[in-house]
């Protein structure tokens, strides 16, 4: 027991002494997918090996990530809510706002598919069919990037999600919790591909609708404005972002696969000489 305690003391000391130690350590707020899909475990060790920079991911929702950025409690952030990111950048809270990668949103649901949407290629059309059949649908309901996107898709289908109730359930929770709920209820749910591929409690759920063209889910990376928060190690943060958005980082994102299926697509064209 003393051994464990001593280890704990060490951890605590490292935590306290973070600014002084030689390795550069950055804290990066990321949305659930980044960590839960396994991408963080694939990508960040490569970043450390190449640059010597340790990036510690802190998993939060988009809203909380943006709050942490405004307060200066993190150094970097990766989110997937273009409009909110634009507002955040415009407010001056972050700098170096750059696209990082893309995946897509897909519609999963019970294998017996009571709304009969399997094989459709338009998500909005599928949502209309689900609404007509009143089959259960789980919404994130947490104002996250995915939730915002889902609401936009409902509006595209000509339905105001605020008028829905009964079969339409707002989980008020993260992607994983919403998937767990849908698996338990046998409900339809909109999810990003990365989280789905890594999700292990699928139960009756299966992929029913993949958009063609895909429902893009763009991820962007940002640095917290060092003019507002001078403790942000801007040089290290820039090096990390440069690597992640550069050829090596982008290649690493492109090679990440779950059970053989690619989960994310780099934004930098591999033939691009830069």
């Amino acid at each position: 027991m003393t051994g464990i305690t001593r280890r704990g003391v060490l951890v605590a000391t490292v935590g306290l002494a973070t600014p002084a130690v030689a390795t550069e350590r950055l804290r990066m707020a990321v949305t659930t997918t980044f960590e839960n899909s396994g991408l963080a475990g694939h990508l960040l060790p490569k970043l450390e090996a190449a640059t010597g920079i340790v990036v510690q991911p802190i998993v939060v929702g988009t809203g909380q990530a943006h709050t942490l950025a405004r307060q200066g409690d993190i150094d970097l952030l990766v989110t997937h809510a273009p409009q909110q990111e634009a507002a955040l950048a415009a407010s001056g809270a972050v700098v170096d706002h750059r696209p990082l990668m893309v995946n897509d949103f897909i519609l999963v649901g019970p294998r017996d598919d009571p709304a009969g949407v399997a094989g459709l290629t338009d998500v909005s059309t599928s949502l209309r069919a689900i609404a007509d059949s009143r089959a259960p649908f789980v919404s994130r309901g947490d104002r996250s990037g995915t939730h915002v996107r889902e609401r936009a898709l409902w509006h595209d289908a000509g339905i105001d999600p605020d008028t829905l109730s009964g079969w339409y359930r707002e989980a008020g929770a993260g992607m994983g919790a919403a998937l767990n709920m849908a698996a338990g209820l046998g409900a339809y749910v909109l999810t990003d591909r990365g989280t789905w591929l890594a999700f292990r409690n699928r139960g009756p759920l299966t992929v029913l609708v993949v958009g063609d063209p895909p429902v893009d889910n763009p991820y962007a990376i940002m640095i917290v404005n060092p003019d507002r928060h001078p403790h942000v190690p801007i040089a290290a943060a820039r090096r990390a972002v440069d690597w992640l958005t550069g050829p090596k980082g982008q290649a690493a994102i492109g090679t990440f696969a779950i059970d053989g299926a690619p989960a994310f697509y780099p934004v930098l064209d591999s033939e691009d000489p830069s």
């Binding site: 935590g15 991911p57 939060v60 292990r200 409690n201 699928r202």
Partner: peptide, 24 residues
């Protein structure tokens, strides 16, 4: 704590994380 691996991850936050990954 932020549930940072090797830094601030404890049993309860690990449980929450694994639940959200569906690793029940």
């Amino acid at each position: 704590g932020g549930n940072i691996e090797h830094a601030t991850r404890v049993l309860t936050t690990a449980i929450a994380l694994e639940t959200s990954k569906g690793n029940l």
